[in-house]
Structures are given as structure tokens and as C-alpha cells.
């Protein structure tokens, strides 16, 4: 006769979902509200005018150029490294993998200090260059170095995961069909791992674009967008910084959205569904 007997069995599950939903919403306030607020309260005409100032355009150009160079270099060097870590039976494999991920856990500013100690005019690598009047800091090269330091792990990690998920029997099959190791890589391994790698590259690009702490230490000049944002905030306060922040957030949102939709568009995401295993069909 207790009221509990008449309750549907899943009532407990529902209360669980309600509470979790509420907790999630609280987090979303912190995650989404700032971005939404930025978009809804910005004065778009004033923002676009502020962005058309030569200094801002210059910073945008520096950011796009440096992150472009960084992402190309990271892809050319990081994808092979990811393949190596996924496929080659290296001694101390886990150690090498951990090493690649190390920069991810180094705080930004500390990373800048590390880089400066190495590549700065008095560092072991920077000094011989400095003696020949080649600077590795406070120029595009320095910015690229910093951006690669903080975002290359994304490329390597996604490549490692992507290549690991490719069934090695597929590579063997390509070999028995007459392909060399290079051809197997280009015709089987890379196309199958690519969707995941592509996401990694986009994430790395966004990370490189937004990199601030290490850049501040290593290459204050020329200003990248985040550094310029800081400069503006220091001199003009919130109102001056807002257009730059808007621009950075827009770039990141567009890149992330493009990455997700390109994947869906090509149908590459579900290419990795297993084929021919443990399926019993009537012919």
C-alpha cells in the first residue's frame, strides 16, 4: 500500500538524469554563456571598424601566417612521428609517447621560459645563431617555434590514434596485392587514419592561433592577435580588447565547425566501421 509500489521502475533513473542535467547546466553557464554574451552584446560595426585598423590587421596577418607555417610543419613532421609510434616496435615505446605529450602539461608561461633558455640569444642553440646575427626570438620564426611547442602534441596524438585504429591486416593485404610500403601508406593507412588526423590538425591550429603565454615570453614582437589583445587590454581596457577577442573566438568557432562538418560531409567518420568480422548473413 505504500505509494512506492505504484511507481514506474525507471523513476530513479529519471531523477538521476534530472540532477545530472542540472549539474551539467551549471557547467554550461561557465562554458557557453561568456561566448554567447560576447556575440550578443558586441557592437559589431564598432568591432569591425576596430579590426580594420592597420595594427589589428598586422596582428591578424602575423597570426595567420605563423600558425599556417606552424601547422604545415607540424603535419609534415608530426604525422610520420605518429605513424612511427603506432606501428614501429620501438624500444621504450611508452617513454617516447610520454615524451611527445610532455609539452601538453607544461604551463604556457613556463614553456616560454624553457624555449627562451634554449633559443634565446644566450641559449645553447640561440647563441651560435645570434653570433651570425640571426635572431630566433622576437620574429616570425620565434612565434612558429612557440606555436609548434604547444600544439604539435595534438597532431602527433591524433596521428598515433588514427594509425593505431587502422587494422594492420589491411596493410598486409595491400602488400600481397603488390604495393610497396610507401604505396600502402599512401593508399591505405593515411586515407583511413585521415579523418582523425584532420581533427587533430584543426585542434592544433586553434591552439596555435590562441597561444599567448609562451609567445609573450619568447616573441613579444611582432604582435600576434593574442598578444595584441593583451596590449589593447592593458592600454584601452575591456572596450579596446573586445573586438580582438571577438575576432579570435570567431576564427576558432569557424575552424571547429568546419572540421566537424567536413568530416560529416565526406562520410569519413564512419569509414572505420569494422568490415567482414563476425557478421553472419544470408547470401
Amino acid at each position: 500500500m505504500t505509494p512506492y509500489l505504484n511507481r514506474p521502475a525507471n523513476r530513479h533513473v529519471n531523477s538521476l538524469l534530472w540532477i545530472f542535467g542540472f549539474l551539467g547546466l551549471l557547467l554550461l553557464l561557465d562554458l557557453v554563456l561568456p561566448i554567447a554574451n560576447l556575440f550578443f552584446t558586441s557592437n559589431w560595426t564598432a568591432a569591425s571598424a576596430a579590426l580594420r585598423q592597420p595594427e589589428a590587421l598586422q596582428a591578424l596577418k602575423v597570426s595567420l601566417r605563423s600558425s599556417g607555417i606552424a601547422i604545415l610543419t607540424m603535419t609534415l613532421l608530426g604525422v610520420p612521428l605518429g605513424y612511427l609510434l603506432a606501428r614501429a616496435k620501438l624500444p621504450f615505446q611508452r617513454f617516447w609517447i610520454a615524451l611527445v605529450f610532455l609539452p601538453m602539461v607544461v604551463p604556457d608561461l613556463a614553456g616560454g621560459i624553457l624555449l627562451l633558455r634554449l633559443f634565446g640569444p644566450y641559449g645553447p642553440i640561440g647563441h651560435p645563431f645570434d653570433a651570425r646575427n640571426i635572431a630566433l626570438t622576437n620574429n616570425l620564426f620565434g612565434i612558429v617555434l612557440v606555436q609548434m611547442f604547444v600544439s604539435a602534441p595534438f597532431v602527433v596524438a591524433s596521428s598515433l590514434a588514427g594509425f593505431s585504429s587502422v587494422d594492420s591486416e589491411l596493410e598486409s593485404a595491400a602488400g600481397t596485392l603488390g604495393d610497396s610500403a610507401w604505396q600502402v601508406f599512401c593508399r591505405v593507412s593515411l586515407p583511413l587514419a585521415w579523418p582523425g588526423i584532420f581533427i587533430g590538425i584543426i585542434l592544433a591550429w586553434i591552439r596555435a592561433l590562441g597561444e599567448f603565454g609562451a609567445t609573450l615570453v619568447m616573441a613579444y614582437n611582432p604582435h600576434t592577435l593574442p598578444v595584441f589583445l593583451w596590449v589593447k587590454f592593458e592600454s584601452e581596457g575591456l572596450a579596446g580588447a573586445q573586438p580582438i577577442a571577438l575576432c579570435l573566438v570567431l576564427l576558432a568557432v569557424i575552424a571547429a565547425g568546419a572540421a566537424m562538418n567536413l568530416n560529416r560531409f565526406t562520410g569519413a567518420a564512419d569509414v572505420l566501421a569494422p568490415v567482414g568480422k563476425a557478421t553472419k548473413w544470408e547470401n
Binding site: A173, V271, P274, G276
Partner: peptide
């Protein structure tokens, strides 16, 4: 011909 056939899914 492999046990899991190893057809190229892409």
C-alpha cells in the same frame, strides 16, 4: 584471403 577479409573500407 584473410580471415577478416581485410576489404578496404574506404
Amino acid at each position: 584471403v584473410f580471415q577478416n577479409l581485410a576489404l578496404f573500407p574506404h
